[in-house]
Each structure stands twice: as C-alpha cells, then as structure tokens.
Design a protein around this nucleic acid. Structure first.
Lengths: 269, 269
DNA sequence: CTTGACCCTCCCCTTGGGGCAGCGTTTATC
DNA sequence: GATAAACGCTGCCCCAAGGGGAGGGTCAAG
C-alpha cells in the first residue's frame, strides 16, 4: 500500500494527474482514509496505472482510456481504437510536415536574400545569364496589375518554382497605361496550362544592377544602367528584365526601403 | 469598411476569433461605433488579418504573432522566430513518428495473432522449423523470473526484433526451483552485448502444439505432445521450446484463457 | 511539543476559441 | 410605420489535461 507520493514516484504519474484520474474515476485508489481523506493505492492500482501511462504515452485522451479500460480486457479488442488513433496521428504528421516545409522554404528564401544584401555593393555589373525555363503570363496593362498574375502562376506551379519572380518589359519605351508586360517564375519543369506559358528564357551577356528601395525609384537605377551601356558602347536588347530579389515577404510586407530588385538588360555581344 | 461578418468571410477568420483578437489587441478594428459597439474593419485590417491567418496556419501562438507584428516589419527579422518554430515542429514530428511506429507494431502483432486464432485447430502437428537468429539470456531460476530478462533483451534489441518471445528449457526434467532456462527473441541482426547472447537457434523436424489457456495448464498440452511422440516412436530432443504467441498484451493483460503458447519439441529425423 | 514533510480540497490559469443566453441594431418587407 | 429576419454586442461557461498556489489537516521524528 502506497501513499500518493510514493505511488507517483512508482508510476511516473504526477500527483496532480493521479488526483484528476481519481476524480474522473479512471484510477480509483484501493482505499481512502475516511478521516484524513488520504488516498491509499494498492499493487493492483500500480498495474492499472502502468496501463494508463502507456496509453497516455500514446497520447490517447482520458475518455478513450476510460472506454478502453471499461469495455475491454484484451489488446485484440483495442485494435480499432489503435487504428483510429493511428490515423489521427498520421493526419497530424502530414499536416506538420506541410508546415515544416513551408517554414523551411521561407527561412531559406530569407537567408539567400541576407547573403545578397551582404555580398553586393549594388554597382553596375556585366555578367552572363543562363537560359532558364520559366512559367509566365504576358499581358497588356499597368505595372500595378501584376499581383494576381504572380498569384496564378504560383498556384499552378507552386511545387516547381525554383527562383525569384521576374518581369519582362517588351516595350521599347516606357508606357504607363498599356504596357506589354510578361510576369513569370523560373521553374524546374512543367507544361503550359491554365493560361500560363512555359518557355525558355534565353540567356546571354547582360548588364545588371541591383536596385535597393521602393519600386517607384527604379528609374534612377535604369538611368545608371543606360549611362553605363552608352559609355561602353553596348547595344541593349529588349525585353529588359526585373528580378524581384526581395519584395514584400511571405509574411510581412517589409520596408520598401529594403526591397531589392535586379535590373537585367541583355546586350549584343 | 466591413462589418465583422463580412470581414470574417473575407479573411476566413471566425467571428469569435476576430473578437478574441480584438480583446487581445492583436487585430483592433479601424473603428468601433461608440453607440452600438459594432466593429468596423478597414482594408488595412484585411492585410493584417491575412498576415495573422498565415501565421496561425503555421500554428504560431497568438502571443508569438503579437510579438512578431509589434516588433518587426520584415520577414528577415522573423527568421529566428521561424527557426524556433521549425525546431518545435520537428521535435513534435519525431515524437509522433515514435508513437505511430509503436501503434503500428501493436496493431500488426494483434492482427497476426488474430490470424493464428482463426486458422488453427490446436492439434499436434509435425513441421520443420527454420534456423533462426535469436538474442537470448540463459539463467538458472524459476519460471516466474523470466519477465525482467525479456525486458532487458527488448531494450537492447528493440529495433531488430522480428518474432515472438520464446523460452528454451534446457533441463531434461521438470524443475521448479533451479531450472535452466533461456529466454530470447528472434532478431534480424545484432551482436552480443550487455549480457545478451546472439546465436543461431537450430531448426529441424519438430512436433508442435498450440496451447490455449493460462500458463499453469501447459502441462496438459505437454502430455498430448509426448503421447504423440511415443505413439509415433519419435525421439525427442532438448531443449524444448515455448513460443508465446499471445500472452499479456502490450497494453492490457488480456484474459489468460485466451493466451496462446506454441510448444515445440525437436525430434530426431 | 515542534518541525518539516506530506496530504487534502478548492479555486484559478493555461490555448484558441465554441456555444449559448439575453439583448440591441439594421435592413428589407409588408 | 410596424415587424421580422439577420446581424451584432457583451458576458458567461465549456473544452483537455493538468499546473500552481492558498489555506489547512496529518504523520513521523527529534
């Protein structure tokens, strides 16, 4: 016969838990001293407590445990309970897996951006771009209309995205109203569908500059780029490209002063 | 401007949740009609609500979300939060994985037993046993001492177990007190360690009988077996074996009347 | 007799809302 | 203008499985 403290140490169940189980009639001590109210547990109670602990470790609810202990005396009859629990846990696990993947994705994105921020001095550079596979939508409209198009591509190709969103400007001049804009994402693979075109974006020699700040100050960076191309007698090609290295985040909108946009202009070699 | 009901439909957050977030000052509506107390939400509130929803979908707590929205305006600064959450989720996932494995194990065991129960008529049979790799402990003592030895083997070889527990009786006669008993489990692989010996249990022609009932009635089944061997002029070998197909379950003790024990006695061929 | 360890009951707290009662407001319809 | 349906408000209790603590009784040793 054990006091509740001893019993707690034996079974690994907290005193609070034991009192709760007594209340719920899940584990009623063999005796209760009527005078003092002290609970006195027996060896048989130890057995039952161990069973309860096992089931709690499997994260069954107290009500389930109650039912299992009341109605059954054999593991075989518990199989349906176990299978139900198994299924719940599987569901929960896949859900957590999704969350985990999502988090990993966001974290990785942010880390890449942090590296770009550190390593770059935001000067005009000349580099060779690789040909990329992109999923894109081309439309006529205003720049501010791009949001939903990005959303549509992301929904259709979410699993295959492998880079930052970008815009191609097919006009040779600036147009506020009726611009010929193509929005897209680099993807690993995929087929055109639902109005989204999968195509190869050709690479080549390009003059690039990373612009830091809100989108409405991009023109200053364009000026730098074109100053550079003229100075170096480079002939620019259209479409020009903007790669949105860091814009509004996955969660927060962020400070536009910290947005990073790489402007890429292909030039004749 | 939206009423709480409209806002709820827009954001996918329940009215109850919205009122709670207001209480907690996590999402305070743009205005509150002083006369009626009606909450009136703005477009800016929609943005904030979406952020909150995203974070809730990642199963952040309201307090965490509060902190994230109060102190930061950029995803980059959330990375430490995200990583902490990531780690919690990983922990939780591995825990659930353990539970899931445990459940699968129990369920599978019980299903095997259920099949044995259906397909067998509990008659004396002659069959050929395969050689098995077992992890075992041999000791001198009483039958009732076996429990802890099984526990020790299971702890050391838990991952490699691939069959039912068994006992080998090395005495040629019945001994109550100082029997020479070897307890073991079939395993897939492993090395001797911590007093547990890994060895090959030789197979061969055997006379077997599945005994149904508590262990103290095993003698009746032994009697049947030896009656059979004598009748068929078979010479029995020691050690004899008991394989505990169904004993006390992983969770419940079960009804001893339903215990199943296969007695195996090798015979000379 | 005291002291410290142990035990009791009772109440509040946790998370993220759900449900309901009781009452007020808005809006459309008659 | 009246009325009813739909919508909104606050306030209270509820969930699971205990944890924390207050206030008070009990037990064993010194």
């Amino acid at each position: 016969m054990f006091t509740i403290g001893e019993f707690s140490r034996i079974t690994g169940l907290s005193i609070k838990a034991l009192r709760l189980y007594h209340d719920r009639e899940l584990l009623v001590p063999a005796q209760t001293d009527p005078a003092s109210g002290y609970r006195i547990y027996s060896d048989a109670d130890v057995e039952r407590a161990k069973v309860i602990r096992t089931l709690r470790d499997l994260e069954f609810g107290l009500d389930d445990i109650q039912a299992m202990l009341t109605d059954y005396d054999d593991d075989a009859s518990l199989v349906s309970f176990l299978e139900a629990r198994q299924q719940e846990i599987t569901l929960r696990r896949t859900h957590l897996k999704h969350i985990s993947r999502e988090l990993t994705h966001i974290i990785q994105q942010e880390k890449e951006i942090a590296m770009t921020l550190q390593s770059n001095e935001f000067d005009v550079e000349t580099k060779t771009l690789n040909t990329e596979l992109i999923a894109s939508i081309r439309f006529q409209g205003k720049y501010s209309d791009v949001g939903p198009y990005f959303g549509r591509i992301a929904r259709n190709f979410g699993r295959y995205l492998c880079g930052k969103p970008l815009c191609l400007y097919h006009d040779g001049e600036f147009k506020a109203e009726d611009a010929d804009i193509e929005v897209g994402f680099p993807i690993r693979q995929g087929q055109s569908k639902d109005g989204v075109t999968v195509s190869e974006l050709p690479g080549g020699k390009a003059v690039t500059l990373i612009h830091k700040g809100p989108y409405d100050t991009l023109s200053a960076s364009y000026q730098k780029i074109f100053a550079y191309t003229q100075q170096n007698k480079l002939q620019t090609l259209i479409p020009s490209r903007e790669v949105y290295l860091k814009g509004p985040g996955m969660i927060l909108k962020g400070n536009p002063q910290n947005y990073l946009t790489e402007i890429q202009v292909l030039v004749k070699e």
